[in-house]
Amino acid sequence: MILRLRQIHQDQIRAHVEAGYPAEACGIFLGREVDGVKIVERLWLADNRWVDPTEQTHRFLIPPEEVLVAEREAAAAGLEILGFFHSHPDHPARPSNFDREHAWPWYAYLIVSVENGRATDWRVWELSEDRSAFMERRLEIVP
């Protein structure tokens, strides 16, 4: 699996996660999958709705009602939800056990490490079918 983002999407994600720092920031990828390449057509920037704001430096939540709305909007445009992104403030761009427990296979999970307020490392992950591990996948940025 490859996650293909346009430069403008990467710029928007960078601005969103840096503005959210030191809290985690998050969003949804809408687009289409062609031969194992997840092509992002639209970016859905979400607010971090984790209930306890004091925990938002290490937790994020996009509630199901928002995912449902995004899913319907995607379907109306002939697209689908391809995956999600979130930031790890002052922490490597690697999924935690908590991330793994809350994931499904197939989706692309982009994690952006934000160090001292700057987005530094971008990594894409996919959950294995048996739910035991995340595998790193390729991020492709196109004009």
């Binding site: 985690e24 290490h58 937790r59 199901p64 449902l68 979130h86 908590f98 809350h102 994931a103």
Partner: peptide, 10 residues
């Protein structure tokens, strides 16, 4: 069937 998307660095 709708997922909520949660996670975090710890």
């Amino acid at each position: 069937i709708v997922p909520s998307i949660a996670g975090g660095r710890r």
